[in-house]
């Protein structure tokens, strides 16, 4: 009979069919389990944690299925472990970068300096973390470009996570003319900041004259906002500050220089001398 056809060793065609069937069933079970996990946990667990749980569940089910069918294929598990150990060393040397990415991926998943959905800067790449795989991390840059970064480079790069903390600070430098009232400008800026709902009450905004610049009196404005909303607040407030200051007669000056020329200086001195010449009084002649 066809099923009794020996493929190799003691393994028959029916054994191979059982193996394929077991793997197919395992894949179906894994899909059903992961689908149900997503449904039940999507409200209770964060998206990135859910992804890790789903992947582990999928890998465990498939792994159990593979291990369970190995004896059918005539593979001795204890022998396989020894062979696997040696093969592991060989493969490890041969594929250092793969192993390095894998280990880095595992560290990224446990240490979690970044999470799915975080706005980050990794090396030169700035964007939103779309996914963290075992081997690579997917980042969507703010201009919508897909970037796949090997986990090794993510792990060894300095990571700036803009959403790791719940609040963050941003600042402006507002220059006003020397003739303007800096205290009035500070008061106006403070009112604008207080008026905005997303600027935090605590930590309080800092507004102060930071330095007397070449062309302007420079006021530093430091504002705290929720990390999730700081950028819209930053975009909105600067223009509002500029408009309100101008409405109140406070202007942001252009860079300017006052130049004195030698000849002009001479002319000025001549004028001064002329002014010092006594003008004879004209007597009234009645």
């Amino acid at each position: 009979m066809i099923p009794d056809i020996i493929v190799y060793g003691d393994v028959t065609l029916i054994d191979l069919l059982i193996v394929v069937l077991t793997i197919v069933v395992a894949v179906i079970i894994a899909k059903i389990v992961t689908l149900n996990l997503r449904k039940t946990l999507s409200d209770k667990v964060r998206k990135d944690e859910l992804e890790i749980i789903v992947r582990i569940a999928y890998a465990v089910i498939i792994g159990i299925a593979i291990i369970s069918v190995l004896p059918i294929l005539g593979m001795n598990l204890s022998g396989l472990l020894v062979a696997g150990g040696i093969a592991g060393i060989v493969i490890g040397f041969a594929s250092q970068s793969v192993v390095s990415n894998l280990i880095s991926g595992l560290f990224l998943m446990t240490e979690r300096p970044i999470k799915i959905g975080d706005a980050v800067k990794v090396g030169d790449i700035t964007g939103v973390v779309e996914d963290i795989h075992v081997m690579s991390t997917i980042v969507r840059t703010f201009d919508g470009v897909y970037v796949r970064m090997p986990n090794e480079s993510v792990f060894t790069s300095s990571i700036l996570n803009y959403l790791a903390n719940v609040a963050r600070r941003f600042e402006y430098v507002v220059g006003i003319r020397y003739s303007d009232d800096a205290e009035k400008a500070i008061r106006i800026i403070k009112e604008i900041i207080d008026e905005h709902p997303l600027t935090l009450v605590n930590p309080e905004a800092q507004i102060f004259v930071d330095n007397l610049g070449d062309n302007s009196v420079n006021i530093i404005v430091r504002i705290w906002a929720p990390s999730t909303h700081w950028y819209p607040v930053k975009m909105e407030l600067l223009w509002k500050i500029k408009k309100t200051l101008e409405e109140n007669g406070i202007e942001i000056p252009f860079p300017q220089r006052t130049l004195w020329f030698g000849k002009e200086e001479k002319k000025v001195e001549e004028v001064k001398e002329l002014a010092e010449v006594e003008i004879p009084e004209i007597e009234d002649q009645d």
Binding site: N165, V166, R168, P197, L198, V201
Partner: peptide, 11 residues
């Protein structure tokens, strides 16, 4: 008028 604040440290 709504307003927000931070309770605790930013981290």
């Amino acid at each position: 008028k709504p307003k927000y604040t931070l309770y605790g440290d930013p981290r």
